[in-house]
C-alpha cells in the first residue's frame, strides 16, 4: 500500500508538469509583455528593455519555464503583480480553505443523497419513481451551474430573504465565539453548496443506479434471496457493497467537473475561494497568480483522485496494490 501511494505520487509529476507547461505557454501567447502592465508609460523604451533583460524575459520559453519550475519546486511561486509584493503562495493559502470547504462538503452531501436515491430507483426499475429519478438526474446535469445559482439567489436571497447570497461571512460582524462564526459561514454556505451539489448528485445517482442494476442481476444476489434473507439485507449488505465500487471510481474521476463547477459557483456567490481569485487575476492579467492557481487546482484534482483510489482499496478488499 505504501509503495502504491509512493508510485502514485510519482505519477502525479508528469501531469503537473504538463498542466503548468501548458498554462505557461498560454500565458506567453498573451500580447504585449508583462512589463507593459506594470511600468509607468513615461519610462523610456531602453530602460524597459534593460529591465526585460534583467528579469530574463528575453530568454527562450523553455528556459524561462525551467527557471519557474526550479523555483516552484522550492515552494516559491513568485509574486503577484496585483497585490503588490505579496507572495503567490500566501495569497493562495488564504483562498484554499474556502474552496476546500465548498467542494468537500459538496462531495459528502451529494454522496449521502445519491446512494439511497440510486439504490431505491434501481430496485424499482421501470416504476414511476424510477422514471422520475432518471429524468430529474438528466435534468440535474443539464442545468447551467450559474443559472441555478442565479435562480436560487433570486428565490431564497431576494424574494424570500432567507439566506445570505454572497461572501463567506457577514461583513463587519465580530463573532464572540468560533461557534457563532461557524454558524455564520454555514448560513452563507447553503446556497453555493446546493448550487454545486445539484449536478454532482445527479451524476452520482445515475452511476449508482446503473451500477446497482448490473449487480442485482447477478447470481450471488439470487442466492442471497434464495437463502431467505430479507430484501433489505440482500440489497444493502450484499448488493450495495459491490455496486458502490465503480461509484467510488467515478467519484475520483468527477473531480475535474467538481472543481469546474466550484469555479463558477464561487464566481456567482462571491465565495472567497480559488475560483473567485482566478476570475479576479484573469481580468487583471496577474500571470504569476494564474500559474499558481492552475497548479494548485491541478494538485487538488490529483490528490482527490489519489484519495478516491485509496478509499477504493478500503471498500474492496480484493484490491491489492503491489
Amino acid at each position: 500500500m505504501k509503495q502504491y501511494i509512493v508510485r502514485r505520487f510519482l505519477q502525479m509529476i508528469p501531469t503537473l508538469l504538463g498542466t503548468t507547461f501548458i498554462v505557461f505557454v498560454i500565458i506567453n501567447m498573451a500580447p504585449g509583455s508583462p512589463l507593459s502592465h506594470m511600468v509607468d508609460p513615461t519610462i523610456s523604451a531602453e530602460a524597459i528593455e534593460r529591465r526585460r533583460e534583467q528579469l530574463g524575459l528575453d530568454r527562450p520559453l523553455l528556459q524561462r519555464y525551467g527557471s519557474w519550475l526550479v523555483e516552484a519546486v522550492q515552494g516559491n511561486l513568485g509574486y503577484s503583480t496585483r497585490y503588490r509584493g505579496r507572495l503567490v503562495t500566501d495569497i493562495i493559502q488564504t483562498r484554499l480553505g474556502p474552496t476546500i470547504i465548498l467542494t468537500f462538503s459538496s462531495i459528502i452531501v451529494s454522496f449521502i443523497l445519491a446512494v439511497p436515491i440510486g439504490v431505491i430507483s434501481a430496485t424499482r426499475q421501470y416504476s414511476a419513481l424510477d422514471y422520475s429519478v432518471v429524468v430529474s438526474a438528466i435534468a440535474g446535469v443539464s442545468i447551467p451551474v450559474f443559472f441555478l445559482g442565479i435562480v436560487l439567489i433570486y428565490l431564497f436571497g431576494f424574494q424570500l430573504g432567507w439566506l445570505p447570497v454572497g461572501g463567506m461571512a457577514a461583513a463587519g460582524v465580530r463573532h464572540p465565539t468560533w461557534l457563532s462564526y461557524a454558524a455564520d459561514v454555514a448560513r452563507h454556505l447553503v446556497l453555493p453548496l446546493v448550487t454545486l451539489t445539484a449536478a454532482n448528485t445527479a451524476r452520482f445517482v445515475r452511476f449508482t443506479r446503473s451500477s446497482m442494476l448490473e449487480v442485482i442481476r447477478q447470481d450471488y444476489v439470487r442466492t442471497a434471496r434464495a437463502k431467505g434473507l430479507s430484501e433489505r439485507v440482500v440489497i444493502y449488505r450484499h448488493a450495495l457493497r459491490n455496486a458502490l465500487l465503480p461509484v467510488v471510481t467515478i467519484l475520483g474521476l468527477s473531480l475535474p467537473f467538481l472543481f469546474s463547477g466550484a469555479v463558477i459557483t464561487e464566481a456567482v456567490f462571491a465565495w472567497p475561494g480559488m475560483g473567485t481569485l482566478l476570475i479576479e487575476s484573469v481580468s487583471l492579467r496577474d500571470y504569476g497568480l494564474l500559474m499558481g492557481i492552475n497548479l494548485f487546482l491541478a494538485v487538488l484534482v490529483i490528490i482527490g483522485n489519489l484519495l478516491a483510489d485509496i478509499f477504493y482499496s478500503v471498500v474492496d478488499p480484493r484490491i491489492r496494490y503491489d
Binding site: P14, T19, I26, P256, F259, S260, V263, M274, V282, A298
Partner: peptide, 18 residues
Amino acid sequence: MVIAFPFLALAITAAAIL
C-alpha cells in the same frame, strides 16, 4: 493528463489570455 485538468480553470485562463 488532459482528463485530470481542472478544465474550466484552464479554459478561463486560455480564453482571457488569447
